[in-house]
Amino acid sequence: MNEAAVKTIVTRVLKNLKSIVKIPIGVSNRHVHLTEADFQKLFPGKKQLTVKKELSQPGQFAANESVTVIGPKGEIGKLRILGPFRSNSQVELSATDARTIGVKAPIRLSGDISGTPGIVLRSPYGELQLEEGVIVAKRHIHMSENDASLLGLKQGDVVAVEASGDGRKIVFNDVVIRTGSRFNLEMHIDTDEANAGNITSAVIGRFI
């Protein structure tokens, strides 16, 4: 069998495999990531976040601590801080949230905050000005390197996913693959995207 024939067969196998893979969908509400230094400025005397709930990705958790974000046109309270600490502080809002408080937040992957708007964070103990870090999170799929390899995918690939909420079938294009040794398979969208497709945490997506 020649190389071209082998490639054709492999492509067909991968396509068939993708079509049957069920992708759990996680709806990500607005939240904040903080550096250890920024956390201690907002919560003086505390050295660590305290865990409220473990999240689906290993090692990630929602903390008991929360903050208010203050924009030019308003504020949103009780934004949950997610742990563990990050190398850069970051605020993730939906597009609706950002417009409501007057912030022109770009759509970015988490961690890509260069040139993004700043914002004021307020805790019960004080305020902190972030010079940058406000984004609308780009939709993405977490998966392990092994899962990605089995599916013929790699870090940074872009795929389309179909999901069927109650009475609303929707296709999400431009979904970015994010791989990691400890990642569980899960697609993350924000509340605006979930509302558009009437999607809850029980909804499963599939590659198309």
Rank of each mutant, 00 (worst) to 15 (best):
R80D: 07
P44F: 05
L150M: 14
K41V: 14
S66Y: 12
L82A: 08
E54L: 09
E131I: 09
F61K: 07
R12F: 07
G71S: 00
A4S: 13
R168I: 14
V136Q: 02
G102D: 02
G152F: 01
P58N: 05
A160T: 01
I101A: 00
S123W: 10
E75G: 11
F85N: 05
L153R: 06
S110F: 03
T50D: 09
L153K: 06
G111E: 03
R12H: 11
M1I: 14
G45L: 00
I81G: 09
R108K: 04
K138A: 08
P106I: 04
N195M: 14
D157K: 03
R206F: 03
T191D: 12
A196M: 13
D174K: 01
Q129A: 15
P44Y: 05
E127N: 15
V120P: 01
E54S: 07
V27L: 10
N195Y: 13
V51L: 11
D97A: 00
L130N: 04
A98F: 03
E132Q: 15
I119F: 05
Q48D: 14
T116S: 04
R12D: 11
S66A: 15
H33R: 02
F43H: 02
R122E: 07
R30A: 11
K53W: 03
G118A: 11
S89H: 02
R30G: 09
A98N: 06
Q60N: 05
K47H: 07
I177C: 07
L109G: 06
E127H: 11
N16G: 14
N184G: 03
T8W: 08
L34T: 05
N2P: 06
L93E: 08
Y125E: 13
E131K: 15
R99F: 08
K53F: 02
F43Y: 05
S149Q: 15
Q40A: 13
S201W: 10
S181V: 07
V120Y: 06
Q90N: 02
D97L: 00
G156L: 06
S144G: 03
V10Y: 08
D112V: 11
G59H: 07
Q90K: 01
